[in-house]
Simulated scan of single mutants.
Amino acid sequence: MRFPSYSKTFTQALYVSIFSILTATLLHSQSSPGERLKALGIELPPASKSVANYQPAVRSGNLVFLAGAIAKGPDNQFIKGKLGYDFSVEDGYQTSRLVSIALLAALKAEIGDLDKVERIVRVEGFVNSTPDFEQQSLVINGCSDLLVEVFGEKGRHSRIAIGAQSLPFGAPVEISAIIQVRD
């Protein structure tokens, strides 16, 4: 039997995902999402304000709908670029993790305490990529892996990962999410 050959980029992204799953298992012994974030060395920034006529988070019943978020760099400027041209899969993966941190900040601003999360229901990821780029799912794994690291089994979710010709402000990744919470 012949196995398909995978690119070095795919193999590296696979190892990163496996490492993230193992990290999530170890971190799960921590008692709260806040403690898991701290163990990961992540401090949530203040939630971003909307840049247009929408809300970063809207709660309806026990669901919170998070608007699409994009990543900012250390200079507080939006990260710009295209996967398959400006960014590698690993760069996209790391950018996706940054976006998930922005999503968690918006979620915390809306519900007050991440302990109220019952389940991450859905993640919708858009990857600004060249027409021949086919590894959108590996990029959005950055978000998925972090959510599992922070919430354990509650962080496993349904998901889409879509390639886009362009995204707002030239962002390489935009992600939105639906979260089930309790009062």
Rank of each mutant, 00 (worst) to 15 (best):
N62V: 05
Q136L: 06
E35I: 01
L138D: 12
E134C: 02
G163S: 14
F169H: 09
P74L: 12
Y54S: 03
L167H: 08
P131C: 07
E118H: 08
S32Y: 11
M1V: 13
K154Y: 00
S20E: 13
C143H: 01
L107V: 05
T9E: 15
E149V: 00
G163K: 09
F10D: 05
V150Y: 04
A102T: 08
H157G: 00
L114R: 06
R36I: 07
N76R: 14
S48N: 11
K154H: 09
R122M: 10
G163F: 07
R159F: 07
V148E: 12
K108P: 04
K8W: 08
A105I: 01
E118C: 05
L22H: 03
F169M: 04
A39E: 13
G163Y: 05
S129M: 09
S32P: 03
N141T: 04
A164L: 08
S7T: 14
Y93D: 01
G155R: 02
K8E: 15
F133Y: 15
F87T: 00
N53E: 15
S29N: 11
Y54Q: 06
V173I: 05
V64L: 11
H28I: 00
G84M: 03
L26E: 11
S31R: 11
Q55E: 14
V51Y: 10
V51D: 14
I120H: 02
S29K: 13
Q77T: 09
T9L: 12
P168M: 06
I160A: 11
G68F: 14
S158W: 04
L98P: 00
L37I: 11
G61D: 11
S137F: 11
L26V: 10
I140W: 04
A177S: 13
N53W: 09
R182H: 08
A52V: 01
S31G: 10
G142M: 02
S100A: 15
E43F: 04
V51T: 13
G92W: 05
L44A: 10
V148S: 06
A57E: 02
E90D: 06
A13F: 03
R119W: 01
I160C: 05
G73F: 09
H157T: 07
F19A: 14
Y6I: 11
F65V: 12
Y93C: 00
V181S: 03
V150S: 02
R59D: 07
A109I: 08
S50V: 02
L14Q: 14
Q94V: 06
F78D: 07
G170Q: 02
I120E: 01
L98R: 13
R59I: 12
V117N: 05
G73C: 09
Q135F: 13
V64C: 07
F126D: 06
P33E: 12
F3P: 01
